[in-house]
Nucleic acid binder design. Structure first.
Lengths: 156, 156
DNA sequence: GGTAAATGGGAGTCCTTTTGTCCCATTTGG
DNA sequence: CCAAATGGGACAAAAGGACTCCCATTTACC
């Protein structure tokens, strides 16, 4: 299917969570799992993978936990997704040219190529810092909503 | 996975094939299957689905076959893909808002929304007429290559 | 009418991927 | 040493993808 998997989705949630914390703060996987509705043991696998690629730093032993592996401003959404799902390939012919023997005269291939470039552009245009910032703002808006200062129907 | 399925890929091949034919020409499914390396029985299922949505017109009985259901210029790549794979949804939260209880303050959701719009733009920017045209040109280039007028290393 | 040639449709098979779980090893602070 | 944390391998259930089989239906032509 042309859709992000739960693995990728969960990874993004975890990374956004980490990005909202003050730099170098560590948090435990169980806490992330609880707050973002992710099965804990599964999230452990996911974070291990992120850790192997340097996107998160993990600390074992009592008092350990995980933190962002690099500065939030240097990690894009695409980084997280490709870490879990492998290189982006909207169509198999984009990574494995041998599959389609009609390249180089396949016009469809060119369209997929263009589509993939556009998708990459969007997915690399926001860093975790951006996403975390908006997330925090959004939460504050929500709190404001709860406080009744804004009507629930007001546009954000 | 974030990738087109074989079902969608085969459907595109078949539609491009139909679009290269003169208007209202019918061809048999077995012929398309043979020429484009698609399992015939499987392609029959795919074309049935395209037929149900009016993208192809099918004629049963001896001497029957299939043809384009509408003018090639009115059918986009997205039409074909969505016919086979359902509505485009890069992330589940785009079609099923209830899944993510953090909307409307989820910044990631907004990114997926933008990415999907861009992807739709590309996939709707080319009709089968465009693709068939380029396909024919490409084939002619290939023929020219075969004739030895151009070197195989010459850029197309 | 009968037969051959074409698409239509339901059911089912096989395989891979996804989405997890279980259990235990390893690390580390107190 | 013990409790608390991550790491890793094996495994399991469920879903989805990629087909096949069998037969029904339609139609042209003799």
């Amino acid at each position: 299917m042309l859709q992000l998997t739960m693995t990728g989705e969960y990874a993004v949630r975890a990374m956004v969570h980490l990005a909202t914390l003050p730099p170098d703060t560590t948090v435990q996987i169980a806490d992330i799992a609880r707050e973002w509705d992710v099965p804990e043991v599964f999230l452990r696998k996911i974070i291990t993978q992120l850790s192997r690629n340097g996107l998160v730093a993990s600390y074992r032993g009592k008092g350990g936990g995980v933190a962002l592996g690099r500065e939030a401003g240097t990690i894009t959404l695409l980084d997280v997704i490709e870490c879990m799902e492998g290189p982006l390939a909207l169509n198999a012919c984009l990574t494995n040219p041998g599959i389609c023997h009609r390249i180089p005269f396949c016009a469809v291939h060119a369209v997929w190529h263009e589509a993939q470039i556009k998708l990459r552009e969007v997915l690399t245009s926001r860093t975790l810092a951006d996403l975390a910032g908006h997330h925090i703002e959004g939460c504050q808006s929500a709190v404001t909503l709860d406080a009744g200062i804004l009507s629930p129907t007001d546009p954000l």
